[in-house]
Design a protein around this nucleic acid. Structure first.
Lengths: 143, 143
DNA sequence: CAGTTAGATAACAATTCCTGTAAGTTAAGC
DNA sequence: GCTTAACTTACAGGAATTGTTATCTAACTG
């Protein structure tokens, strides 16, 4: 995702309006590696601007998603997570605490032989690793 | 997933009761490669037994899941899909029509170097390919 | 720099997918 | 055939998200 300042300019170029609510969301997403949900972003926004509705947060997140600035990830944790990290990477999902980590992989086998694809045109490939994060693993050993 | 007859026996062994509703669901799942949702299974069940509730379908599907006979898949298509195919495979999800196909892959690179995992203990790795299925691709070309 | 207006916001209701509850019904073992 | 745990149904409820609408405001316009 671009910097908040660049997003402001980009929004104006696209005929979208720049509101304080949106700027707040831009800042909260910038360099954010926590894979936040709309709900968690909203919780942070509300600390600064108490009247902002969840709907506004969803709308802004979806606009950023449509513009390719962030990705919505459905990792089976109940709600969609938003990721401003647009470099190619994959995810580690803790089956216990549901935190999401990033992992950078070169997966040669993902260059698939066309025969196995049977006409399917691949846009992208996501790899999701499920297991225990280091914290939950450690706690698990203690119990 | 095992055959309907085997499931009947297995349910009884496990102290679960075998009802006509459940047997109907067993048959609908057997050799089913369509990755049905609870809703779509229910639609089929109702054709044969009009009074069956969606709740009953969910309950039976979850029991089969708990027994390891089917897998629940959250592929970001809105609802959970159930897959009786228990061999190791991955999925092709059409971003247009949301149908789900199977793909069999050997992914050597998924034997990850422990350094990139930073203490994360991997249980399993799922690969989801998103793109256009052959039907949607063809239609896309025509439009 | 006030007026205009497309677009954004907030409050609220609705939707979708799924789960909890409670009361009636049935399969399996005796 | 009786008992009882388990199943089924109807219905309510819940979480995540989206639709609606009236109000408001950013940014353009003169």
């Amino acid at each position: 995702m671009r910097s908040p300042d660049e997003l402001v300019a980009l929004f104006r170029e696209n005929g979208r309006k720049v509101t304080p609510q949106r700027e707040c969301i831009f800042h909260l997403l910038h360099n954010n590696r926590t894979h936040p949900t709309a709900e968690s972003i909203h919780a942070e926004v509300v600390k600064r601007m108490p009247s902002v509705s969840l709907k506004t947060v969803y709308q802004t997140l979806h606009e950023l998603e449509d513009m390719g600035e962030i990705s919505g990830l459905d990792l089976g944790t109940g709600s969609v997570r938003f990721d401003p990290n647009q470099s190619v990477h994959h995810h580690l999902v803790c089956t216990n605490c549901h935190t999401v980590g990033d992992i950078y992989l070169e997966i040669d086998s993902l260059q698939l032989a066309s025969k196995v694809l049977q006409g399917f045109e691949v846009g992208n490939a996501e790899v999701t690793f499920r297991g225990l994060c280091s914290d939950c693993k450690r706690l698990g050993n203690l119990i």
